[in-house]
Every structure is written in C-alpha cells, then in structure tokens.
Amino acid sequence: MDSSPREQLQSNCADYRVLNLTNELEASAWLWGPLEDLFFTVVLPCIMLIGFVGNVSFLLAVIRVRDMQTITNAYLANVAFADFLFVVYSCAIYLSTYLLTPVRNDVPYRSNVGCICSFGMIYLTYFASLNLITFVTVERYFAVCRPFQHLMVSGKSRTIKFIIASWVIGIIFIALIIPRHAGYFTFCVNWPKQEEYLSFPKLIQFCDTIHPDVYILSEACQTGPFFIAMIINLYMYTRIITTLNNRPAAKSESSQHSDHADAQQKQTTRVRNQVARLLIINGTIFFLSQFPYRILSINNILQQAIGIGFLDRQQYGMFLVISRCLILINSCANPMVYVTTSEFYRKGFKMAFECKNKTLSTNSSHAKSMIASISSQRGDN
C-alpha cells in the first residue's frame, strides 16, 4: 500500500529546518492540553449544533414571515448568514486539525493555497459581521435620533448597497491580511526520547507569515477596525438609549387621560426598554466576545516588533482557546438574544414554524408598536 504524502516526507527530514523539542517541558507546550481536549470533544460540537440550528432558524423566520422582512432584519439576516458560515466552517477546520495531529496549530495535508482559503473564509465572516453590525447601528441611530433624515434616505436601495459594501469591505481587508497566513512551512521535530513521543509526527507544518512586516500589518488591520467600530457603536448605542429614555410617549389631547392612553403609554415605554435592552445585549456580547482575541493580536504585534509579548507560549495557547470559544459562542448567541429580549421576534419565530398562516399579524397596536420600535421601517416601503 502506498504511504501518505506526509509519511513519504519523513525520510526527507534533513531538507527542512529543525525544531528541537527534546526537553519534555518545551515539547508539552506544543501539544494539545486538557483544556483544549475538553474544548474540541465537548464544547465545540455543542457550539456547532447550536450555531447551525439558531442561525438557520432565524434565516427561515425572516424568509417565511413577511413582517420579519424589515430593513433591520435584512442586516441581521446577513449577520446570521455570516455567523452560520463562520461557526460551521471554523468548527470543521478546528475539529479536523485536532483529530489529525497531536501538535497544536499543526496543519497537515495543506498547501499555500489551502492556508489562504482556510483563513480567508474566517476573516471574511468576521469583517462582514463587524461591518453589518455597524451599519445596522447606524440605521437604528438615524431612525431614533434623526427620524426625519432617516425617512428621507432609508429604503431598500440603500440597505442593499450597505449590505454589499459590508461584504466587499471584508474582501478588501482579506487582501491585506491573508499574506499573514500565506506561507506554508515544514519543520523537522526532535521529540523527547520518552516512549509516548515515538508515534508523534517527525514533520509538522504551519501556515505562517511570508514576511515579518506583513505579520504586523495583518494584525493591525484586524485590531484597528475593531476598536474603531467598537467606539462608534458604543457612542451610537448610548445616543439611542438616551433618546429612547427621554422621548415622551405620544398621546392625543382627546385621550390624554383615558385608560386607553395610559395603557398605550405603558406599552410604548415597555417597548422602548425592550429595544434598549436588545441593543445593549447585542453590542456587549459581540464586542466582549471579540475583545480577548484582539488582545492576542496586540500581544502578537509586540512579540513581532520588539520580541517581547506579555504571554508565554502556554499562556498564549490557553488564552487562544478561550478567545476562540467566546467568538464561536457569539456566533450562536444572536438568535437567542432576539428571542429572549423581544416579543416581536418570539412571535416571528413561532409563526415561522407553525403549520398555519405564515404571516405575522400586525392588527394589534402592540404588534405595530413593536415593529415600529424594533425594525424602524418596513423593507418594502
């Protein structure tokens, strides 16, 4: 039987750079640890299942329920699609790597093109989500804080342009970042003499930078836009919440003291608080889940620029698992946030999977208030 390409390379070990890991302590830092074993065998499959079901369910709800087809949900549907691609693709990549090799970050059976494609998809979904979340925040900001301007410029055409721009900007950033992973390097490893290391691969491969300066540029292109977007979003979230809290409930003079007006005021206030809660939770989850990974990027920049980072290899590996886990959880969280914080989305999900009428009724003033507050404007207006 013919040997695999990787096995065939073992006899040519002298052709590659040597990685001396004969010290058992140094060798253990290159291997999957107990935390990573738990992550790959338990956490990752659960995240993959929840992310698949949650994001597909939200997309189906938007497709099947007409009143879910709003400008805001056009952005959120693209976020769900990006999250779906990210969680399924990333989990598949991580699991295959874990199952194929005992060495952390070893990527056997790839090539330069394989490295580019593997990381390219992950970066595309990240930047698309970042852009889409920022654009939907801009929509909500103008709808709440500058409603007259919003009415003049909002509509399908602008929404489509912003959504296309979100993905195109992601592709542009990929072109800047992907050289960070475009190199495919092979190392010959000298493992410790203990018996447990005898079956370990003699050759390991990594996707790495083609030049140190490219590495720094790549990490900066990931980190800079994140912090800029975080500041912009936090500013607009603050303005939206402040405006919602300060805006008085609309009441006609003839019904100012009626029970109907009092009930409507309470309902409007409840909806405003619900919207504020939705905004706060969405923003907090996204930026907090991405924040640890951006800290790793800063560590990488310092390590490459001055040779000193604030994390050693073992700490870096543990921090990397935690940060990846948080990012993957974020890709599953949005549909749950919508359902738990908004009655409008709960009704939408319920209607989407009922066997009866698939159009969410908006006859009640409550439903109309929910749509007006949460979705800003119908996408077909």
Rank of each mutant, 00 (worst) to 15 (best):
I204F: 07
A333E: 01
Q10G: 13
P108K: 03
D15T: 15
A74D: 00
L95G: 15
L31E: 02
L326W: 02
I164K: 08
M48D: 03
G348I: 00
L302F: 07
T362D: 14
S365H: 08
I63D: 05
I71E: 09
S289L: 04
T41W: 04
L326N: 00
E354H: 10
L311G: 00
H211V: 06
L100D: 09
A14D: 14
I298W: 06
K251Q: 13
A29L: 05
F162L: 07
C115Y: 07
Q194E: 08
T72K: 12
R158K: 09
K202D: 01
P179L: 09
T242H: 10
F148D: 13
I210P: 00
E26S: 05
Q274A: 14
F148C: 13
V214F: 07
Y89A: 01
Q69I: 12
N131R: 10
R146S: 11
S289H: 11
P5M: 11
A61C: 03
C46T: 06
D15E: 15
A372C: 11
Q267S: 15
Y237Q: 14
T70P: 04
L234Y: 04
N55A: 15
F319I: 05
Q290S: 07
T341L: 03
L25E: 08
A182E: 06
V275P: 02
F187T: 09
L9N: 10
L151F: 12
I327F: 03
V79H: 03
L132Y: 03
N334C: 08
V62G: 05
G33Y: 08
L328Y: 00
P147S: 08
Q377M: 11
N282D: 02
N334P: 09
L59K: 03
R180G: 15
H181L: 15
A175G: 11
I177T: 09
Q10F: 10
L59Y: 03
V136Q: 02
M318A: 12
G54A: 15
R66F: 06
S157E: 13
C117P: 14
P225H: 13
L326S: 00
Y94N: 08
C115L: 10
E253T: 10
Q314N: 08
P108N: 02
K356D: 11
A250L: 14
F353P: 12
I93Q: 08
I295T: 02
I298F: 11
D2W: 12
R324V: 15
L320C: 10
F86V: 00
V79S: 03
P45M: 07
L279T: 09
Q10K: 14
L76A: 07
R313I: 12
T359V: 14
L360P: 01
I295Y: 02
A333F: 04
T97S: 15
T359I: 12
K161V: 15
L44W: 04
E139Y: 06
C325N: 10
I306L: 05
E7Q: 11
F84I: 01
I329D: 01
R294S: 10
N20I: 05
W32L: 01
S90D: 11
M236E: 12
N73Y: 07
D259G: 08
A82G: 05
T97E: 14
P335F: 06
V113S: 11
K161F: 15
F353V: 13
K193M: 15
R66C: 07
Y338F: 15
S289N: 12
G33D: 12
L19N: 01
S28T: 00
L44F: 06
P335H: 04
I174S: 09
Q222E: 09
